[in-house]
Design a protein around this nucleic acid. Structure first.
Lengths: 241, 241
DNA sequence: ATCCTTTAGTCTTATAGAGGACTTGGGGGA
DNA sequence: TCCCCCAAGTCCTCTATAAGACTAAAGGAT
């Protein structure tokens, strides 16, 4: 149960054991792990030692503690993803939730660029999605999405209207793929013709382009997507450390 | 000797007392502070409590511990300071290494907007900087920076060419202000005339605008800056969780 | 002179226990 | 029904003790 390397301090071995169990999904994100005392008993250590192990995982951002409530597996907070911050507040200033419409879906093979981004061999089977996100019926964001066929085969079987507004919950329920990390890259450019058309923008309109790669618990890339939105409406806030 | 607020936990009061002594220069950077046991005795607390206070200061980056040697006041190490708060990247996503040139510096008073952003009363003395950041000699970003005069008075006395490429290390060495957090706000807009001129862009050229507020350990705003960069060349990367 | 051993000082890890603070949920009173 | 209060569960603070690990410096052996 504990890491076998006896040279390591007990608290580190407990920490590794817990990290492995978290990664294995023993507790789902948002769920509480056992209390300090229970953990200590289970690992045959003092409470203070278990506590120190937990503190390490909290510092790593894998756990969250709340006094009086418990210690919880941290869920990735995608609340501050770039694409969410295209300005889409209603008249009252409250943020609006975009709806999504799947325009196209097809099987494909990874070209060199895609293969690199998804860490796959060139030519690996993939699934491509083209999606539109709308605010109050008005197109706001166009998204080109590609995922490896191996992990996401159920997406092809699904009815088109079974795709809801949010994709990541679908990944989890339909394909068992949990998104835990993301990297986004922002730049400004001109809209390609098919994007401009989908967004009802004039050709070559200035757009914000967000390229995103998301990763699974094992660190493997799960999805690569490029999102386009009108540059004037882009607005994003981020807290650093 | 201890902070007088008895509502705070002892370890926090010890931590504050030590932080104040460090800031006052009681020990020089690189010098060791007293041993855990000595500190505990001095503050009339248990060793474990003094230890927790020290851990807090280590986490803040003010102290450095070395097993068997002692606990030392951290010498400023700015090795990767650049990348901690600098998220502008090249087209390939790799971080850039800009140089900086200070174009203007002047004393000023906070208007309403500035006062709000720096959490100061309107009319408080401030220092404004206008700075250009260059890649291989080409202007890439223009920055308007404003800091409270109270904390940053030494900046006015400094020779203009004493401002290096990085401002935050200077804040730390010249003014004793440590930056620990930042908030950035991104949007897209048109370059004001003086910005366009500084960046060698046509008037009203499309630019990316980054508004940043940085905060000290005590959570107070230290600096507000607005950075402008040509939209076509702008590139920004972010990792989520 | 160089290398090894010893020793003191320091941080690190581990244990145990007591009381405090916070959150939640349920029972009782209005 | 609604609100207040209490109890249980949980993490937080603090204390006390002991042995291990690391570093630097002093002293001795080669």
């Amino acid at each position: 149960m504990l890491a076998p390397d006896r040279r390591l301090p007990i608290y580190l071995r407990i920490q590794d054991a817990l990290a492995a169990e978290i990664a294995a999904g023993k507790w789902r994100p948002g769920e509480a792990i056992p209390a300090e005392e229970a953990l200590a008993k289970r690992f045959g250590a003092a409470v203070g030692t278990a506590r120190k192990a937990i503190e390490g995982l909290v510092a790593q951002g894998r756990l969250e503690r709340h006094q009086g409530r418990g210690t919880f597996v941290r869920r990735a907070d995608f609340g501050n993803m770039l694409f969410r911050f295209f300005r889409h507040t209603g008249a009252d200033g409250a943020p609006l939730r975009p709806t999504a419409k799947l325009l196209a879906r097809r099987k494909s093979k990874a070209d060199a660029a895609t293969a690199r981004r998804l860490a796959l061999p060139v030519g690996t089977a993939t699934i491509e999605l083209f999606r539109l996100r709308l605010i109050e019926g008005a197109p706001m964001l166009a998204e080109e999405i590609v995922v490896p066929h191996r992990r996401f085969a159920p997406l092809l079987a699904l009815a088109k209207d079974a795709f809801g507004d949010l994709l990541y919950p679908l990944y989890e329920t339909a394909c068992g793929q949990i998104v835990v990390q993301a990297r986004e890259h922002l730049r400004f450019g001109q809209a390609p013709p098919h994007i401009a058309k989908a967004l009802c923008l004039p050709p070559k309109a200035p757009v914000a382009i967000v390229e995103r790669t998301v990763f699974a618990v094992d660190g493997q890339p799960l999805e690569f997507r490029v999102s386009y939105g009108a540059a004037e409406r882009f607005s994003y806030t981020i807290d650093i450390k």
